[in-house]
Simulated assay, not measured.
Amino acid sequence: MKALILTNRVPFPPNSGYPIVVYNTIKGLLNLGVEISLFSLNVSKHRVDVDDIYDLVFEKINFHSYHIDIEVNIWGAFFNIFSNQSYNVSRFYDDDAARILENVLRENEFDIIQFEGLFVVPYLDLVKANSKAKLIYRAHNIEFDVWERLAARERFTPRRKYLEFLSRRLKIYEKEQINRFHQVFAISEPDRQNILQFGCQTKLDVFPVAVDFEKYKVDLTKTSFPTLFHLGAMDWRPNKEGLEWFLEEIWPDIEKLSGELRFYIAGKNMQREFFDYDSDNLIVEGEVFDAVEFMNSKAIMIVPLLSGSGMRVKIIEGMAMKKCIIATSMAAEGIACEHGKDILIADTPDEFYRSILQCITQPHRWREIGEQARKTVERDHDINGNTKRMLAIYESLTTK
């Protein structure tokens, strides 16, 4: 079985949501004997020096990439208004990248070509013209939904109108593309339902975030208490928006609960304004070298997302590390978790306050929830079980 995977960023190192999902997919398929080729857009926002990649998984694949600048250009955004294209998507297409991909397709015969996310779909026509492989689209989230929800929360009218415009264009594009594949993978059951509402008529299955549990070693002797933490890429607008809400509306009351309580904020591309919150009780760390070690050292994970779709990889990782996670319903969407059993759901400042108070006054409580969280992700998110099921679909598609 030969598979080509197309990605909108280089999934090495696997240090945030999208790279982790892609990396674990590749690792699991390699373990099952699938020959993997990877074509990645090496985007300016997340540029990786390919020569500095030292990874056993990387050594086992056939890798191709092209550096592309996807930064928002004011004039480009303006003139796009008068076109019929989605600016969010069109920025990922480049003629030179297309030529490299075309050469890969002409020099190799693939059984499966998997598009990881909407932003590599602009290359679909090229792939169709140069390959007879079965084509799979994996929706990491419902892209237009992210922008639609952001627009709904935007108070500045001109910005809200533009966000609404972007979401409409994305929605049209997503709906147009969804039936052009042989198979679609949704990352959660709610996303599967949304895709069905698009009018999806092709085969549709759910493949949640899968993790390699060998990576998530828990050592409670290194976990400090009472500690809260937030971990996430801070250049992703829903993360930024949610954390701002928590710091403004919830943290001032939480901080008064105990002089020993500490709240640690970490993540890539930490925005400058968050350092203004730094105090004796609130520590802004920025990007951490080892996310798993960072999670292991803290007790309670805070995920105050107010928008977004898909499945939060950091929550899955936190559950794998036996963390007690306090999250909004939005953040936990798509994860088969149960409030009060393997997670605590909080959607209002009062609910966050009560949940945090419960955890810091009853230390056994957060440990019990964390233990159950690990059992939940072992049941639903194991890399081996998920990739075996994916390979079975590959085989079914290619024998038809």
Rank of each mutant, 00 (worst) to 15 (best):
A332E: 03
V377R: 07
L126I: 10
A139K: 03
G17Y: 02
G340H: 05
P208G: 14
L243F: 07
L220R: 12
G370L: 02
M270S: 10
I343G: 02
I20T: 14
P238N: 04
R159W: 05
N15Q: 12
K298W: 04
V211L: 14
F181M: 00
E35N: 14
R91H: 05
F274W: 05
Q177D: 02
D125M: 09
I136Q: 05
V89T: 11
G259S: 11
K388G: 14
S44F: 06
Q85S: 13
A327V: 06
F225H: 00
D342H: 01
I369S: 01
V34W: 04
Y137C: 13
F39Y: 00
A327H: 02
G334T: 13
D290T: 03
K128W: 01
I113G: 09
I325R: 01
L305E: 08
E273Y: 14
Y87I: 14
I74S: 13
W245F: 15
A336E: 04
K268F: 04
I70E: 14
L38P: 00
K388R: 15
G308F: 01
Y54P: 06
V34T: 05
T387Q: 11
V21S: 12
A186M: 04
K222V: 02
F352K: 10
V10F: 08
K128I: 06
S396C: 12
Y54N: 15
T328S: 15
R262S: 13
T398H: 07
L101M: 08
N108W: 10
T376A: 02
S167A: 15
F229A: 03
W251I: 09
W236G: 02
I356S: 03
S131H: 10
M234K: 06
T221D: 12
D52L: 15
I265E: 04
K341L: 14
F39R: 00
T221F: 03
E109S: 15
T227H: 07
K45D: 14
A327M: 05
I195M: 04
D290K: 09
I172A: 15
S307R: 04
C200Y: 04
V292T: 13
Y353T: 13
K27Y: 13
Q193W: 03
I326Y: 02
Q183W: 13
G199Y: 04
S279E: 08
L163Q: 14
T223D: 02
Y137G: 11
R47H: 09
V121K: 08
F12H: 00
L124K: 07
D350V: 10
T376D: 00
G340I: 00
D350Y: 10
I136L: 07
P238C: 10
I20S: 12
Y394P: 07
R237I: 11
I113L: 08
I302Q: 05
E351R: 15
N84A: 12
I393G: 08
R379A: 14
T348Q: 03
V184K: 07
C337D: 09
F165V: 06
G76F: 07
G242K: 00
E338H: 12
F246W: 10
Y162G: 13
A133M: 04
L4V: 09
W251Q: 11
S309C: 09
R155H: 13
R159S: 11
I325K: 09
L357G: 13
T221W: 01
K203N: 13
S40F: 03
R367E: 11
R138C: 01
E176S: 07
N73Y: 06
A266V: 01
I315P: 08
G117Y: 00
S131P: 10
T227P: 12
L150C: 14
D69L: 12
D342C: 01
E248R: 15
K161Y: 08
